[in-house]
């Protein structure tokens, strides 16, 4: 299972979060993002969550107003990709406490942090929900103590 990238696209076609696990130039990135935005937004609700694009497979899933899109290798297990998205959303839900699109826009560092604990180098590194949350809370503590330092100085 190797995820090449993860993009969060809003229903209006705005990109909310991206993470690339392969070295890609900005130009190709914007091309892929643009292509996928049109491709996925144009698909109807009942269609399958897998689209073939270039030499990879695109797996996407819609949660409220956000599309979670990942690109995986052609031979990877698609349903597992779908469940990775689900797990990511679950974990963000826990981390933010009822996550919404705005949470991700303004607190993007936390979204990245959850992602980094779930995936490493495009592969699931930790499937245990508890472990990821522990790491994220730990991170919150660290951030908190930092703010505190600033106040004292």
């Amino acid at each position: 299972m190797s995820i090449k990238f993860l993009i969060l696209i809003s229903r209006q076609g705005k990109v909310r979060l991206t993470k690339w696990y392969t070295t890609t130039t900005q130009k190709t990135k914007s091309k892929i993002t643009k292509d996928l935005t049109t491709l996925i937004l144009s698909r109807r609700a009942k269609m399958c969550n897998i689209v073939e694009y270039q030499d990879m497979k695109i797996i996407y899933r819609r949660y409220a107003s956000l599309f979670f899109v990942i690109g995986i290798d052609n031979d990877d297990n698609e349903l597992m990709g779908l469940e990775i998205i689900h797990r990511y959303v679950e974990q963000m839900d826990k981390a933010y406490g009822k996550v919404s699109e705005l949470d991700i826009i303004f607190g993007f560092e936390k979204a990245y942090y959850v992602l980094d604990e779930l995936l490493l180098d495009g592969k699931v590194q930790e499937s245990s929900k508890k472990e990821v949350l522990k790491r994220v809370l730990n991170q919150d503590d660290l951030e908190g103590s930092e703010e505190f330092d600033v106040l004292i100085n």
Partner: peptide, 8 residues
């Protein structure tokens, strides 16, 4: 009925 299952 599930599209994904058919595909896979």
């Amino acid at each position: 009925h599930d599209t994904n299952t058919r595909y896979l």
